[in-house]
């Protein structure tokens, strides 16, 4: 039997908009993944620490506030510093089109904006996690 994919859904920074994070967490859980939700107000250190402890395959970051360029890349930078290469990082929220290539360059593998079908995220994870 294949090992279940483990996903950490995290809310970095001060932003309290958690509707998207919670919907994605439920959708991934219903798709058979193990989902850990951090709750609000997480620093990059807290997120990476939890990701390591929980041995996750995926970190999903969600943000509406517009601080994604700083807060998402804080997480990928810290992963790089710790030489962690087997966790893929996804981002979701209100993210302008022009920021997406910059985020991808910084190691955010997939970016999902408003109106994304939850199935699209599930497929993306299945395709990108090496099992």
């Amino acid at each position: 039997m294949n090992k279940k994919i483990r996903v950490l859904i995290a809310k970095p920074g001060l932003d309290g908009h958690d509707r998207g994070a919670k919907i994605v967490a439920r959708a991934l859980r219903n798709a058979g993944m193990e989902v850990i939700y951090t709750g609000l107000h997480q620093t990059a250190e807290m997120i990476v620490e939890t990701a390591i402890q929980e041995d996750v395959d995926v970190i999903g970051l969600s943000l509406l506030s517009g601080a994604h360029m700083t807060l998402f890349t804080d997480v990928t930078k810290l992963l790089k510093e710790k030489n962690i290469e087997d966790i893929i990082v996804l981002g979701g929220g209100i993210i302008p089109e022009q920021d997406i290539p910059k985020l991808k360059k910084e190691g955010i593998t997939g970016v999902f904006g408003p109106g994304t079908h939850t199935e699209e995220i599930i497929e993306f994870i299945h395709k990108n996690v090496k099992s």
Partner: peptide, 15 residues
């Protein structure tokens, strides 16, 4: 938090 607080990182004026 004031703008120069460490938890304000990345959030100035965004929302």
């Amino acid at each position: 938090y004031d703008t120069d607080h460490h938890l304000a990182r990345g959030e100035f004026g965004k929302c």
